[in-house]
Write a protein that binds this DNA or RNA. Structure first.
Lengths: 343, 343
DNA sequence: ATTGGCACTCTCGCTTCGAGAGTGCTAACG
DNA sequence: CGTTAGCACTCTCGAAGCGAGAGTGCCAAT
């Protein structure tokens, strides 16, 4: 495949830009007039024809303008991904908002979702930060009513997990506290496997608790769609791509169903922190995403706790805005989480 | 206004039933043929005309069939609301599922949302059960890194709340535990106000913790949209009412935005537990809901913890199914929560 | 390599038209 | 008086036809 001339690159990016604005096929004349090119429409047409030939653009029908193909978007994004930055003013506004909600992770997530949805002009997804290696920090057993006991487990990252537990027979709160303290001493700093190894030599009841704790630790390492925060879903439906209720439904299903989300987010997981990953049209891997795109990034402190966040929209998406916003918010969240761990 | 004859009532309910199935205006002939009425279409037409005159039905245009008005739905629902029951077989299936997830409130909520969405054929909403009067049960202070402390508060209902706290200077875990124990002894069983009253006579740091705890208790009594679980949103978009993306967007916005939800749910709050509330077309109060309907109910143990759940859909909604499902699920959730409190 | 000119193609919105569905009305009937 | 058959009338819906407009592709000239 031949490479693109300077002007062809320019024209390709202009087509993408114009098309993301107007959502209608872009004509040669429109390009010349709107962007003040100093060549004639006919010249532009030649380049358009060449770009179409090479697969970067497509004509909906013989006598229409051009719109980008998946490949076109990919080329565009590749040129773009290293460069874009959110304006300093916006950066400051956002940072300020985050520091208002000092220490409250869930509020950060909500804020992140809101910022992503607004600045990235799409639906946003933010998963809770998860321990990469969940470690035991503290255990508490609290008697509730009769034989019902509440088990509260604190992980090394400060996350709290809870679980109900029914005893064979009532046990006093003092005894429960003592047991909890013993187990805490035994398990502090250990991961699921190491905790499970402490089963030996414990009493029957303690064994049960330890098994439960190990199970909870294990579960904490999975990325679950349970704690995913969404925002801007209604906005994205305003895009003309979603005028057909069938498309809208498909998009909603992607955003709603846990299984899809898990796959998607594991995609983000495979990218390194700091890097932004752009999935255009499902990258030929997910049929359900063929018409959509996502801009994803991981955030958090590797080795401690990380999560994923991103923007979802039609293929015709303002990639520039989305990428810079995702990158910035991911970085910000990472800093905040770093501060929790190493204040 | 004259009252309806026996046959008019029958015909009205048949129109509603047929219309909820087909989503197209119902003709006199269709009624006679499908439901085996032993009168002629002409007779039915007379009744249809009367019902239209009285405002229960409407004609989209001169020569179309009839569809129910809001008033028509209301009449229909009023007759229906006392009677419907979910089939025993379905009841058992659902009950079984819930008892699989013993003790895990969040999983119950998710399950409830899923059941409501499937059986009620709409989008479902389930709020977390909230303490009516949040009472202190247990406090734990856990040292994290340096001056960062994790405050874990257990409420009388077994809910767990957490909050980060930055100290002026490092304090050892032993001291923190002692302080937590002292405050627990002081505050156990008390509500926000009574907890706050314990400020007097405590050390500076203890005062800070107590204030924070009181604040967390107070917040726990608010119904927040933060912990609302949704399901079936994609399904509801399949209904022809949402073919227009404008309507779809409005529905999504209602389901997504916190402020709407809070209003809606407070509506459910005002109904007594066990009672099912049907809001048709926003009952002239909420413009945004004019095209939609909701079937809502509270669940939980009054005086301890209650939440709300419901089904959202177009006005043309299978009210029978929705009402019986909502009633059943609300009852089931209430029982489960009762068991947590009074095992 | 670029450009002006021009024929060609395809969509889109508009109108027309006929079929079909369903009603309202009237007159007859038990 | 309630019910019914018959019939004229109305309105929607889909198909078909048509003209305007937009935009291209190509060719010949620069």
């Amino acid at each position: 495949m031949e490479s693109l001339t300077e002007r062809q690159q320019l024209i390709l990016s202009l087509v993408v830009r114009e098309y993301t604005d107007t959502a209608t096929p872009v004509s040669s004349r429109a390009l010349v007039e709107k962007y003040g090119l100093d060549v004639s429409p006919a010249t532009v047409r030649n380049d358009l024809a060449a770009l179409t030939e090479m697969g970067y653009l497509r004509q909906p029908h013989t006598s229409a303008g051009r719109e980008p193909t998946e490949m076109g978007y990919r080329y565009f994004v590749q040129r773009l991904i290293g460069e874009t930055e959110l304006p300093i003013a916006e950066q400051n506004t956002i940072t300020h908002q985050f520091y208002q909600a000092r220490g409250d992770i869930e509020q950060w997530m909500r804020l992140a979702a809101s910022v992503l949805a607004q600045h990235g002009r799409g639906a946003s997804l933010v998963t809770a930060p998860r321990q990469e290696r969940a470690r035991f920090k503290h255990l508490e057993l609290i008697s509730t009513h009769g034989r019902l006991v509440l088990l509260v487990l604190v992980l090394s990252g400060g996350e709290v997990r809870q679980q109900m537990l029914t005893l064979a027979e009532p046990v006093s709160q003092e005894k429960l506290s003592a047991i909890a303290q013993r187990i805490t001493a035994l398990c502090v700093g250990k991961d699921a496997e190491a905790v499970l190894a402490q089963v030996a030599g414990a009493s029957t009841f303690e064994q049960e608790v330890i098994r439960l704790v190990a199970e909870m630790l294990r579960k904490s390492e999975e990325i679950s769609a349970g704690d995913v925060i969404r925002d801007g879903v209604a906005n994205v439906l305003a895009e003309p791509e979603f005028a057909s209720s069938e498309t809208a439904r498909q998009a909603l299903r992607v955003l709603e169903e846990r299984t899809y989300l898990e796959q998607l987010l594991s995609k983000a997981v495979s990218s390194s922190v700091g890097g932004v990953q752009v999935v255009i049209g499902g990258d030929n891997a997910w049929q359900e995403l063929r018409e959509f795109s996502m801009v994803l990034a991981r955030y958090g402190v590797p080795g401690y706790a990380t999560g994923a966040l991103g923007v979802f929209g039609p293929q015709r998406m303002p990639y520039g805005r989305a990428i810079s916003t995702v990158r910035f918010v991911a970085g910000l969240m990472s800093n905040l989480i770093y501060e929790i761990y190493f204040e």
